[in-house]
């Protein structure tokens, strides 16, 4: 095979960043994959192939519980975020008028402020002596602080929805913007009510954005570490917390690697399945 002039010029530019990504992304991922088949005895690494880590990761109830919970939380967060984000994206796209850019800017600002602080604030808000409880006591709505607010899965879901919502709005907005407005007029002209029009025209045509938003939220949230650690309590911990524990305190990097690979496999396969299920909506784009 011979390389054309374009190939050479393109790769001369792309080479450096590509090699960087290769070294810092592909090599580490491969190393982690290899590590997941090894064992660690305290600080000594034994490089003999074993499936023991996966056996442990897949069949021990602790990990099963964590995987199930993480998936459930990610799933719930994704659903709520999309339900929340769609009307907002819809409003900006269809009623934003000349202020579309301003609305989008207002929505994206929080995303660029410290994630760590935003998640921490939820702890401050929902805590036993927190902002919400003290506020409610102050105005006399309650006499005893509410204890169900913090340190459970619900708190994690709430904080994550808050943290990721701006990410869902942008792709949905973009796909709504792409809808040719004359299609809507055509559907009106052909007798569709606003309700029918939404389900027959707008929703199907905005599916690429929805699918994008789902992937953008579902994949990273399953690996979230900060939020469960801050507001989850023991009942709300997720798989990332366990990966971190195994990696550092428990000195079991191979198990941490196996847990990481497993979570990637889970989110990866679910995402691929999801994309395949929506293939008919994604065609022609």
């Amino acid at each position: 095979m011979s390389f054309s002039e374009q190939d050479k010029k393109g790769w001369r530019l792309l080479g450096l960043p590509f090699i960087f990504s290769l070294l810092l992304l592909a090599v580490p991922l491969a190393t982690m994959f290899a590590l997941s088949f090894w064992t660690q005895d305290y600080l000594v690494l034994k490089k003999t192939f074993t499936l023991a880590n996966y056996k442990q990761a897949w069949f021990e109830p602790v990990f099963q519980t964590l995987f199930t919970r993480s998936l459930l939380i990610s799933f719930t967060v994704t659903v709520f975020t999309i339900i929340f984000a769609f009307p907002v994206a819809y409003f900006i796209s269809f009623y934003g008028g000349k202020r579309k850019a301003l609305w989008l800017f207002l929505i994206t600002i929080p995303f660029w402020t410290s994630y760590l602080l935003r998640m921490f604030l939820w702890k401050v808000i929902l805590g036993y002596n927190g902002v919400l409880n003290s506020f409610l006591e102050w105005i006399g709505a309650i006499t005893e602080p509410l204890t169900f607010l913090l340190y459970n899965s619900n708190a994690v879901v709430l904080a994550l929805v808050h943290g990721w919502a701006p990410f869902a709005i942008l792709p949905i907005f973009v796909s709504l913007e792409k809808i040719d407005r004359s299609l809507l007029e055509a559907s009106n002209d052909l007798g569709d009510t606003a309700f029918k029009q939404f389900f027959r025209i707008i929703l199907p045509l905005s599916m690429p954005g929805v699918v994008g938003a789902v992937l953008i939220i579902f994949i990273p949230t399953i690996g979230d570490y900060i939020t469960p650690k801050l507001v989850g309590g023991p009942e709300g911990l997720m798989i990332a917390n366990m990966i971190q524990v195994q990696f550092s305190k428990a000195n079991n990097a191979p198990l941490a690697a196996a847990l990481s690979v497993t979570s990637l496999l889970i989110v990866g396969s679910i995402s691929i399945l999801f994309v395949l299920l929506n293939k008919k909506h994604l065609r022609n784009y």
Partner: peptide, 20 residues
């Protein structure tokens, strides 16, 4: 491939890099 870190969970990036 270069865009992958955009959606990869950060914990996995962290663990991977630290491993290497």
């Amino acid at each position: 491939f270069i865009l992958v870190p955009l959606i990869l969970p950060e914990i996995i990036l962290g663990v991977c890099l630290l491993t290497v």
